[in-house]
Design a protein around this nucleic acid. Sequence first.
DNA 1: CCACGCATGTAACAAGTTACATGATTGA
DNA 2: TCAATCATGTAACTTGTTACATGCGTGG
Lengths: 184, 184
Amino acid sequence: MAQKNLLKYILLGLITEKPKTGYDLKKEFDTEIGEFWSVKHSQIYLELKRLEKEGEITSDTGFFGNKVEKTYYAITALGKKHLDEWKYSYDTALAVNKDEFVLKLYFIKDRHDERLPSLLKEQLDMRQEKLSHLEGRRTLLFSTPQDIEKQYGHYLILDHAIRRESEYVTWLKEAIDSLKGNEK
Amino acid sequence: MAQKNLLKYILLGLITEKPKTGYDLKKEFDTEIGEFWSVKHSQIYLELKRLEKEGEITSDTGFFGNKVEKTYYAITALGKKHLDEWKYSYDTALAVNKDEFVLKLYFIKDRHDERLPSLLKEQLDMRQEKLSHLEGRRTLLFSTPQDIEKQYGHYLILDHAIRRESEYVTWLKEAIDSLKGNEK
DNA sequence: CCACGCATGTAACAAGTTACATGATTGA
DNA sequence: TCAATCATGTAACTTGTTACATGCGTGG
């Protein structure tokens, strides 16, 4: 996805709350946001330098009570403006949901392929594990209506991730069932 | 997604059935396969040249009864071997489902944001349209059990795409409903 | 003292997009 | 005749991955 540079807006969005280091930002991709975007730390540090050069963020390097030098990045007025423009922009087209597993299935034309059940089963295990993990997070983070109220966007995307994985699990289970007794 | 080069396997998979031109391959991304991978024609032609150089495919250029010169690509034994290895390989990790719309929501912290309903509504319209289109294709392509039997992998991924979009639609509808009467 | 996590970066490369470019055919 | 579709490609660029690199702090 060249050109659109969503990482820019994600980083701006994440430091809006409070200034953060590259490492802080990297860690954010380990939880909810990681369900909908991924990036390597090398790319984050590169992008932060660029954003600073372009005046979207400012940096503050020093030893903040610690022994280790850190660089905190904060959003500027320009950065806020661009973030807002993105947040409220309308998409005209739906992006593609790339999925390697589904593509593999597409090329297994034969319903009676003996390796098909184990491929489905392995994917099911991974998806179920992920689903459990996400449900655990919802319980942890959103146990009261006030929690939901305070972080509504966050709640919505976690809820969406859970539904998405539930759908995946249901689909796989039905596919596995539909093969039972059909093993040629 | 550098390095993994899924396009290679998709192209190999698509020409396994019969030899195809770059243009034929490009068109395949307009239907089901486009739900799970996208690519520009420039990339396809580049990849085809590379695959030929690496002995995965062979090419045949000429005027096949037409006035226009075309190049047909066919898979080699080596290509078949690599395609098979990929088809039956197990994934160890789940790839990230990148989704710009969901990320936007994440950064709209305020449930009472007046621009939130229209953003949700616009997305809902697009997703509903897509869902209708996919359901139309299922009706068209898989009206009988024999159709499903003949192209089982194809059926599975179309079914999955439909369920995925249904989930998206349900999620958006519920989110919109949950905002009703809450407009601060 | 050693492994692991914290913290930051560079370099080489691969993958994918955008724009440019050309020319033929087909149907309205 | 004019637009759309067929058909193929190159060049410049951006995004993202992989690998390499360094050094400190903390807990077992």
